[in-house]
Amino acid sequence: MVDLIVVPLLKIVVLIVAVLTAVAYMVLLERKVQAWVQVRLGPMRVGPHGVLQPVADVLKLLIKEDITPSRVDRWVFTLAPIIVLVCAFWVFAVIPVGPTVELFGREVSLQLTDLNVGLLYVVSIASLGIYGTILAGWSSNSKYPLLGSLRASAQLVSYEVAVTMTLVTIILLTGSLSFNRIVEVQRDMGVWFAFLQPVAFFIYFVGGLAETNRAPFDLPEAEQELVAGFHTEYSGIRFALFFLAEYTNMIVVSAVAVTVFFGGWLAPFPNVGWLSWLGYIPGWMWFVIKVFGVLYAFLWVRATFPRYRYDQLMRLGWKVLIPLAIANVIVTAAVKVWWLS
């Protein structure tokens, strides 16, 4: 009974609270990092160095008026942000935050559930998130959101193919779709897949930027062109849900990247003697550190690059990334079949 219901429920609560906190501070981090790059200070007023800014932001978004424009499709208009956020959270169910640990005399794995099709589960849930975006644009009954949502969905659909292809190479290497197994294989092989599969990692990273609508691929919400894209008509708490979902998705992409390409909870340099003290830092700490490392790269890219144009983005996806990803799969498969066996 305890194992079946209480432990998973506790895990879910802890996970959601942790992710929400991470998202709130992610927003602050984004503003701070961008400010540092741009020789500014960033938020400084709420709390020392603005550390309480997320609290203020959340409060503001909660008490703001939640406007429903008069000629929208109410039902769908309300449903859309919920779909986006729920799909973003669902993914966390299979991501292993750390190895199995002993807590209160009980073996607890730091993962909600180890699905044997974990990798595919992530991909399929991510593809469901698109509905929120499309429906938000359609139900707003306004032109800019419609254009924004069309862009978003076309972008998501095309980049998903490339990202999924890179994950296929990982499946070839591990022979398993389970996240736990993927991390274990990296431990046994003694090398993180980012170094074994640099091309796949590159494609995943670029595709991840595109899938989370981050710069330089932030076309669906390109402020200078489409005002705010698919959530132009949203305000108050429903806008906040989109906002949350965007950052949650960033964390999802980073978490998957860390698990698949950077050895998940594994400590770096296990074979270097004088660095063995790194192993004493608990696995979930390593996981969090790595996730924030990848997130920092996201912010760094945003502060550096201009924005792609829509057709160029599609060209990059279909004519460069997807063929590259397929070639990568073929080469990996050939190497595996002819050399390693």
Partner: peptide, 16 residues
């Protein structure tokens, strides 16, 4: 111009 194309950092450098 750079900010319109999405390079926000250049904008702040220029204003500096």
């Amino acid at each position: 111009h750079a900010a319109d194309i999405g390079a926000l950092t250049v904008f702040l450098y220029c204003l500096r």
